[in-house]
Design a protein around this nucleic acid. Structure first.
Lengths: 358, 358
DNA sequence: TTGAAAGCGCTAACAG
DNA sequence: CTGTTAGCGCTTTCAA
């Protein structure tokens, strides 16, 4: 057992209350006693026990984080941003992953609540129908959603405007002359963002008088390997590209990992991006910039999302006098113009397609 | 304030001790009272307060994790492995990053100790000279190093054999006919692994009677952008490649991010891998497999490292009767044969180099 | 099988 | 400025 405030008090010849005062309100202790206590502290190697403090205070200065997976860089970056900001604000971070299992969301939050975290930052599968969020609401525990962009709700959240970002990405493809643009998406069921991005795709297509193609929904992916190929959906992707004259000239993917996996799978059957098809991702993972071709993408500021979420959460925990916290923070997205996308005219076989399409 | 065991006791008409018993030793409570208590619990939405429990027990069933950064996938994967295993063993995870600042290592551990974590998993800059580890030793807190591979020490650690893995990587390059092989490394100061990998490089070169080239040490990197180019070391890299006849035919990089950044920087001046130079990385990040060319690398099983570290730590926390835990666990590495590396003969200008080198 | 009581480490009145 | 005291939620003797 490490030394407690009691031993320090004994050693310094003061009461435990005084020791506590030095720790929390140094100014309320005389120079002399402060020195004595300080000396006892270093001598004993005393370290305050947060469990005692938390129990007493009813607060823990700890926040919980729940993300689907760390295999996707976006969430790792986000956690990075959270941790950095937390440290700056003197909060600790308890971390949990769900591997996209919705029942694990509930279990994770349950555990965090037992630890009496002061608040939670989380990304859920579907913010509009989440028992987990209902629990948090019922318990009155402050929480901030990341990546989730809840519609018509006063739930705190930090994200980009998924629909608008997807729209911009697809509009960019259209501006480059593409007409047959198809969306490749992760399971809509596992990600409400995917649905919003699909709506953005629809928006852009319709705004330009183009016929949307049915979305290609693929298995959830955790690792980058064998995401698309070999699965049913992988087959779907390859089928879609089987007929060179019917195939889309551009693919808009609901996230970068998917885009990369799709490129890999297509490459295996001789279809190269951007030579044969333009590929656009979503997320803007840093490594995308190092690839050849550079991955075009709708970029989200993941680390900033984490940073903002943490600050928003802390503001909700310690309501400061002054301007209230807006419920939803929409951060700016950007379109990265990578070489995985090129103009329609530059696509191999554009002419034959041209004949077909118009 | 959420309901406490006290309220449950009151509601169920029993003592707090009995409620506690139901929670911890269900078998020691009669069927009837168990039901009554259970009912009170659900009715009140009771959730045990771990702070109270921990305070009393002197254990927290929480472990701390300290990694340099989450921007490098390796550490994210490792944390992922830790969290997964922790959940399986009913431990919680407190997470901290240091951004490669050595003073933050100490601060992070200090914070974790105040939370009274039962143990710590960490990757430090230099395991052979770390005040942080000394603190942990002094306090008698179990800890497990990851990636660090301490020499001649009984400190618990989980890693690959960095030196052997680097040797194998370089031997592979040599087997492909390369003779002028140079190492590109992160700051030795910030990573003892980098030094060990350098020794592996030296081993391989010498074992084959080749003259080692001086290592190219570059700035520490956190993001993937502008790692090498533009910095002093970046200039160093480009200088090294300025003379086409003197330049190395293969580059062995101390980690994958560095390899990718180097390829990007060289590409900018018209030097392409693998056409003009073979590039080998270290880490085996999953995305390396999706790149073109696929990144050859010495692969570490990062998620398994995390998993193993957690299990090793828990074993150290609850010493089980039976076989003791070995101090150092060396996990198997593998060489990924990516297309970023090709035979020396296939390198453009190999002949002219040949003339020079022999 | 159950209850009473003490105490884990800390802080916050309340006195002095 | 400092000490006394009570109690945060929980577990664990010790008795019954």
């Amino acid at each position: 057992m490490p030394p407690s405030i009691k031993q320090v008090a004994l050693q310094a010849g003061v009461s435990t209350a005084t020791v506590s005062r030095l720790l929390n309100t140094p100014s309320s202790v005389s120079r002399d006693t402060a020195d004595k206590i300080q000396q006892a502290i270093t001598q004993l190697g005393f370290r305050p026990n947060f469990n005692g403090r938390n129990l007493r205070a009813g607060r823990s200065r700890t926040i919980g984080v729940v993300v689907p997976t760390l295999s996707n860089t976006v969430f790792a970056q986000c956690l990075q941003g959270i941790e950095l900001a937390a440290r700056a604000l003197d909060y600790s971070v308890m971390f949990t992953a769900t591997e996209y299992h919705q029942e694990d969301e509930a279990a994770a939050v349950e555990l965090l609540l037992r630890h009496r975290v002061d608040g939670v930052i989380l990304t859920v599968a579907d913010a509009s129908a989440s028992p987990t969020l209902d629990v948090l609401d019922r318990e009155g525990i402050p929480y901030v959603l990341t990546y989730n962009q809840p519609q018509q709700s006063e739930r705190l959240s930090v994200s980009v405007d998924n629909r608008a970002a997807a729209h911009d990405a697809v509009a960019y493809l259209i501006a480059l002359g593409h007409r047959r643009i198809q969306m490749l998406s992760g399971h809509f069921h596992a990600s409400d963002r995917a649905i919003q991005r699909y709506h953005g795709y629809l928006d852009a297509m319709r705004a330009h008088g183009l016929t949307p193609l049915p979305p290609l929904e693929v298995m959830r992916h955790t690792t980058t390997s064998a995401v698309v190929g070999g699965t049913d959906a992988g087959v779907g992707l390859l089928q879609t590209f089987a007929d060179a004259r019917e195939r889309p000239s551009a693919l808009f993917c609901s996230n970068d990992l998917l885009a990369l996996a799709a490129m890999r799978d297509l490459r295996k059957v001789g279809i190269e991006a951007p030579r044969d098809v333009s590929v656009m991702g979503f997320d803007g993972i840093p490594l995308g910039e190092l690839m050849v071709p550079e991955l075009a993408s709708a970029v989200q500021p993941s680390e900033l999302i984490g940073d903002t979420a943490l600050r928003t959460l802390v503001a909700a925990i310690d309501p400061q006098p002054g301007p209230g916290v807006p419920a939803s923070k929409i951060l700016a997205h950007a379109i990265r113009h990578g070489a995985s996308v090129r103009t329609y005219e530059a696509i191999d076989g554009a002419n034959s397609q041209h004949v077909m399409t118009y």
